[in-house]
């Protein structure tokens, strides 16, 4: 049977190709040898470059390593009761919602019961660090973009490309430059998660009411005073939406980044896929979904609370 299929296929191919010159029929690729050589040259050149700057790269990356390790230690070494209490407190303070707070408690306890507390802490640590870094990088870039149309026109295409690239693809340059490990994973996560932060900061500032800005000018505000007294506060709800998206994208990318050596729930998921561990995979999936929902609900509720005074009730 398979043999016959093969034959008919070939027959079809020959039938449609017989009228065409070979050049148009099968793609005229460069010779394998040529491609192999070219790849080798480029790879060697790139590696040489990385090797040359390894000192610089290490010094840049070192603080990230320390910060990440420190936070991971804090999360995993503290008694779970304490971590849970602090988490619920933070969730309550941001959302002011008993429902979300109780949900957080229940979700985390279930995670602990199925034995994934430690892995979840590792994932939380890297997500937290990645989000903080994305905010620190994203907000200033967003502000720059909002201040100049030329800046916006220059950065927007870069963001477009970043957002269309599949998440896997980010891992390639990161691994080549930084190698395998937690920190390269972290860097990949930050690069993947930063575009919405930049975009929504820019958008939020650009959407600020022109008349309010004019009022700020009329009272003699300097550009800095305008930024801090008017633009940032009024853009805050939009910026919060950016933070929310950045958190969710970090969490998604942390799972993918397990392929380059990030631990935690992502690593377990990868194992489950490789070994077809259905239940184990399911449990990890549950833990990921639970913390995703917690992050999402808490940050959204916070954003809504910020928006309370910005709504126009009376014209």
């Amino acid at each position: 049977m398979p043999n016959r299929d093969h034959k008919t296929n070939k027959g079809n191919l020959m039938a449609s190709c017989s009228l065409l010159p070979n050049l148009l029929c099968s793609f005229p690729a460069m010779s394998d040898q040529y491609i192999r050589d070219a790849r080798k040259v480029i790879d060697e050149g790139f590696k040489g470059l990385v090797r040359e700057y390894v000192g610089v790269i290490d010094t840049v990356v070192q603080p990230l390593q320390w910060f990440l390790n420190y936070l991971e230690k804090v999360f995993t070494n503290s008694p779970w009761v304490l971590v849970l209490a602090v988490m619920m407190l933070i969730v309550y303070l941001t959302s002011r919602s008993v429902r979300i707070t109780v949900g957080t408690g229940v979700g985390m306890v279930l995670i602990g019961v199925i034995g994934l507390w430690n892995d979840t802490m590792i994932t939380l640590a890297i997500t937290t660090v990645a989000t903080l870094i994305a905010i620190l990088i994203g907000i200033p870039i967003g502000i720059l973009m909002a201040r100049s149309d030329r800046m916006q026109n220059a950065i927007n295409p870069v963001l477009d490309v970043m957002q269309t690239l599949p998440s896997f693809v980010y891992l390639i340059p990161v691994v080549v430059i930084f190698g395998i490990g937690k920190v390269p994973g972290l860097i990949a996560v930050v690069i993947y998660a930063v575009p919405p932060m930049i975009r929504l900061t820019n958008l939020g500032i650009r959407l600020v009411d022109k008349e309010v800005l004019e009022a700020a000018d009329a009272f003699g505000s300097s550009p800095g005073q305008k930024l801090w007294n008017v633009q940032m506060p009024l853009a805050l709800p939009t910026i919060m939406a950016g933070i929310n998206q950045t958190i969710m994208m970090s969490l998604a990318m942390v799972v993918v980044a397990s392929m380059v050596g990030v631990g935690g729930l992502g690593k377990n998921t990868l194992q489950a896929i490789n070994n077809q561990f259905f239940t184990f995979g399911f449990m990890n999936g549950f833990a990921l979904v639970a913390i995703a929902i917690i992050f999402d609900r808490a940050s959204q509720a916070f954003g809504k609370r910020l928006q309370k005074h910005s709504e126009v009730v009376h014209g």
Binding site: E211, V212, A215, A218, F219, L234, S310, E311, V312
Partner: peptide, 12 residues
């Protein structure tokens, strides 16, 4: 000092 048609107050 200026007063605006749509008030232009800072909502926050």
């Amino acid at each position: 000092a200026m007063v605006f048609q749509k008030f232009a107050l800072l909502p926050h």
